[in-house]
């Protein structure tokens, strides 16, 4: 049985740092713009969405700071897809190491997702600059924004551990997840404002807000951009139902950790 202090012992910390550093260095190796791509990718995605949904379809009418609102959603979403996409494949991609060396396997998953975490950090700085330029007033709420972001990372890691462990044996999981994220994208109010759903059906809006990703994105928007953003907290009355998305995240995270731990002993044979 590994006790908690042993989990982050010196050996594991060194390995985590070295693997993260390597992933980070190699990610944009050989591209002309290099690390700029970390910022450019979500920004370009944002531009496309902005033109289509704000200018052509006029989704954003009536929402204050809609471009920032939209950018916030795309940044969090691309973090989620990058983190889970890489995390699920981590064990398989590092199969060469796992087959020939003995070390805690979770390090591979965390180190792979750390690049996504760094990207998120850079993008959040861009978001803040954007918000200030757009006239968003800084507030004390900003200090609370890390909480839903940590929740998002916990969810991403839970999914990565759970599906990543299954993916070792059944490689279909990675592909299924790719398709599933496409569907999830439309389930969360990233491009469309939730107010639009609420205006035709309050029930639909409430169901959408049970999805942890929707809850997280709306919470970050609420804290960073505008208190008019619809949140799970405001849409549900009882304390019990307010916490459903958080409970889902906790369950996914625990399930992922337990299952990964159980299966990781046999990764060397199966990968």
């Amino acid at each position: 049985m590994t006790k908690l202090p042993q989990v982050l012992n010196r050996r594991n910390r060194v390995l985590l740092k070295e693997l993260s550093k390597t992933d980070f260095k190699l990610r944009y190796q050989g591209s002309v713009l290099g690390y700029l791509w970390a910022v450019l990718r979500p920004m370009l995605m944002f531009c496309i969405l902005y033109v289509v949904f704000s200018k052509v379809l006029r989704f954003g009418d009536g929402i204050p700071h809609y471009p920032v609102y939209l950018l916030c959603g795309t940044i969090l979403w691309s973090f989620f897809t990058e983190c889970t996409g890489m995390g699920i494949q981590a064990i398989v991609m590092r199969g060469d190491l796992i087959r020939k060396l003995s070390f805690p396997k979770w390090i591979v998953v965390i180190s792979t997702t750390s690049t996504a975490l760094i990207n998120l950090g850079i993008n959040l700085v861009v978001l803040i600059v954007f918000a200030l330029l757009n006239g968003v007033e800084p507030s004390l709420n900003w200090l609370l924004a890390p909480i839903p972001i940590i929740e998002l990372y916990a969810l991403s890691l839970g999914i990565s551990f759970l599906l990543g462990a299954i993916n070792v044996k059944y490689r279909d999981v990675g592909s299924i997840w790719d398709v599933l994220t496409q569907a999830l994208f439309y389930c969360a109010p990233i491009i469309y404002p939730l107010s639009m759903v609420a205006s035709s059906s309050i029930l639909a809006a409430r169901i959408i807000l049970l999805n942890p990703i929707a809850q997280i994105i709306q919470d970050v928007r609420y804290l960073l951009i505008t208190t008019t953003a619809e949140t799970t907290w405001n849409y549900y009355g009882s304390a019990w139902s307010k916490t459903i998305p958080v409970v889902i995240v906790v369950i996914v995270a625990i399930l992922g950790a337990v299952y990964f731990r159980k299966k990781s002993k046999f990764f060397a044979e199966e990968v």
Binding site: R11, V14, L15, E18, F103
Partner: peptide, 11 residues
């Protein structure tokens, strides 16, 4: 350094 870390050595 990477190989060393994988083998369990500190920097």
């Amino acid at each position: 350094y990477l190989n060393g870390a994988l083998l369990g050595f500190s920097n």
